[in-house]
Every structure is written in structure tokens, then in C-alpha cells.
Amino acid sequence: MTMTNLFTIILLLAGCFFFLGGTLGLLRFPDLFSRLHALTKVDNIGLGLIAAGMAIHIGSPWAALKIFLIWLSTLLASSTACYLVAKFQLGRPSESPEVPAK
């Protein structure tokens, strides 16, 4: 086991932990706003950790640059998404089902 492999394994495991946290938050939190909070923050840390781990494993600068750009624009995209969805939901009843009960 080399040093880089060790780093990769640690980073990937940490990333998996954060992904699990995000999913549990999505499932367990009571309303949309807290779910947004769990999803768009925790998952991005998970993605960042996994991306860093794989960038170390692949070891090519071009791929590492690409992976970094992927992560950067995911950060941007999901914070935008978080803001937009939260603003959309603001002022609406938070638990209104989309179809009338039959």
C-alpha cells in the first residue's frame, strides 16, 4: 500500500460518509428547507472529497484540472439551485401535496 493509495482510500471513505449524511438528511428532515440544506451542502463536500481522492489516484494534471472544474461548477450550480428552490417554496404552504386527495 503506497502513500497515494492510502490518501485515496481515506478521501473516498470520507466522501462516502458525507454522501450518506446527505441522503439521510434528505429522507429524515421534516421540511423542504432543511432538506435543501442537507442536500446541497453535504453532498457537495462528499463530491469534493471523492473528486480529490480520484484526482490523486489518476495522477494526471489535465484530468485533475477537469475534475476540479467539475466540482467548482457543481458548487455553483447547486447553491443556485438551493436558492431558487427555497425562494420558490417561500410563501407556499410547505407540505401541500401536488394532487388533490382522491
Binding site: S73, L76, L84, K87
Partner: peptide, 15 residues
């Protein structure tokens, strides 16, 4: 159009 959304669209479209 939300002003933030406008900026984001201006940023994302060229990308």
C-alpha cells in the same frame, strides 16, 4: 426574472 438567476444564466450560457 430573479436578479441572481439572471446573473447565473449569463454565467452558465457561455459555459
Amino acid at each position: 426574472v430573479d436578479p441572481l438567476l439572471r446573473q447565473v444564466i449569463l454565467l452558465f450560457t457561455p459555459v
